[in-house]
Amino acid sequence: MAAASTLKNMALCLTAVCLVCSAVVGVAYAFTAAPIAEAARAKTTASIARVLPEFTSEPEQGSVQVDGTDYSYYKVDGAGYAIVSPVSGFGGILTLMVGIASDGTVHNTAVLSHSETPGLGAKCTTDEQFMSQFRGLDPSVKTLAVKKDGGDLDAITASTITSRAYALAVSNAVNVFKQLTQGGQDHE
């Protein structure tokens, strides 16, 4: 039956198992690395297309530091900026892509990644009523906070923290946009 539990046997067995297992994981990684990168890229392009008005030019990637946080963004000529805005949500980092048209209004938002509770905070990716509030929103007219905090946005039912994080992410993106466009004017 089982091999005797001598030190030599145990060490040999564990070493062998670990070697084989790492090899398996390595092969799986090599095999899936390309599809994973492809899936991530397809998602980024789809998100840019979703959050900005129709565009034909190639998005141009860049990054900027605002209030000590690094933001990456995609500049699309004639359409505006798609800004990647990460904040702390309820279950971890919630990363949004916020499309801001050239006139400074929020065109649309999309969730890039989140770890919110399934069925509750995770609704921020599907709740049409909640997401539609950001479409065409003019940050100089409306306050980007949920009503509980004195803002103009309805929160997702039972997910105030997620909604709050979402509003904060959009509001941060607006600040990034301001910095980006002002920085551009300085150069002119």
Partner: peptide, 24 residues
């Protein structure tokens, strides 16, 4: 082939490997 005393670590390693593969 697995010595009795280290069977649980071996099982967990095998399981973790498959979970990682599944995750990828």
């Amino acid at each position: 082939m697995v010595p009795d005393k280290v069977r649980i670590p071996v099982y967990i390693t095998v399981i973790a490997t498959f979970v990682t593969v599944l995750q990828l």
